[in-house]
């Protein structure tokens, strides 16, 4: 797709352009942050040491990517506490898929969720590679270089889980639960702003086009593993984005902001003081 006109730097955007850039960045950053936050729950609980390390590693990657997107929101003024530790739960813009708790002890859940999410993320990054906003475009290559392994990891596990009747049944149960939520990845934050994001060339594929491409990849793949996909599934009641979140999100938000509040913080704490300031 031919790229739209290049946009200016963060200080020279019009109000409308800036709103579009911010809306897009909040989607990207929040999806990554919340997905990573959930992955970390598997630390020391995954079925094997290697899978434990793998998922922890993937979580770290996604946190790194969230940071690259939050950096760009910081161009517009907010600092880390504004963006993460003090932002009210109802102002987060991630898809509901990211916030769902895992079925207890159900390894099929994070694996399938990672697959559904990582295919979507690949499409999303592809659509940002030629973004009209240079600050976004310049970060896509780095992120894509760190993503390949995620999908490979999920597929590798899914294929093994699908070989056995009992474990395939578990994947099927997770799929029935997660598939409608995976559709929230392509739900708009605000229809009008999403259209503007496309018109400004901030991304080169619309949400609807990416959703279609995602279906074309995940449905045949999952069916090939002997799973049934309800391709006509409706969106769940809570979709996240700019709309309502699940109650589980409030719990998760409470948990990861708890320490910050308990300790009465008003700024993001550094692990180490600047030696020059301590002198």
């Amino acid at each position: 797709m031919a790229s739209a006109e290049r946009l200016a730097g963060p200080d020279d955007l019009s109000e409308e352009e800036r709103e579009a850039v911010e809306t897009l960045l909040y989607r990207l950053a929040d999806d990554e942050f919340v997905t990573a936050e959930r992955y970390t729950e598997w630390q020391v609980r995954a079925p094997t040491l290697e899978s434990d390390l793998a998922l922890a590693n993937i979580a770290q990657d996604e946190l790194g990517h969230a940071r690259l997107w939050y950096d760009l929101l910081q161009d517009f003024g907010p600092d880390e506490p504004d963006l993460i530790w003090e932002r009210p739960a109802d102002e987060w813009r991630h898809a509901a898929l990211a916030e769902l708790p895992y079925g207890e002890g159900d390894w099929a859940d994070p694996i399938l969720r990672s697959y559904l999410y990582d295919v979507a993320e690949e499409l999303r990054l592809e659509a940002l590679a030629d973004s009209s906003y240079a600050r976004i475009r310049d970060r896509v290559g780095k992120i894509r270089g760190e993503e390949d392994y995620h999908r490979e990891h999920a597929e590798n596990w899914l294929e093994r889980l699908a070989e056995d009747d009992e474990s395939r049944e578990r994947v099927q149960t997770a799929l029935d639960r997660l598939f409608p939520y995976a559709l929230t990845l392509f739900a708009p934050t605000d229809e009008e702003v999403e259209e503007r994001i496309d018109e400004l060339g901030l991304r080169t594929e619309s949400l609807a086009d990416m959703r279609e491409a995602w279906f074309d990849t995940v449905v045949p793949y999952l069916e090939g593993l002997g799973l049934d996909v309800d391709a006509d599934a409706d969106l769940p009641d809570d979709i996240g984005r700019g709309e309502s979140h699940t109650d589980d999100w409030d719990d998760l938000w409470d948990e990861f902001t708890n320490t910050y509040r308990e300790l009465g913080r008003s700024e993001a704490t550094r692990i180490m003081k600047d030696p020059d300031e301590v002198k």
Binding site: D11, Q74, D75
Partner: peptide, 20 residues
């Protein structure tokens, strides 16, 4: 975050340019 300095329009900032 002090590590990435705030955008300052006075300083020529290559970040806003198209790399090409």
């Amino acid at each position: 975050m002090s590590s990435e300095l705030p955008y300052d329009p006075e300083i020529p900032d290559l970040r806003e340019n198209d790399p090409e």
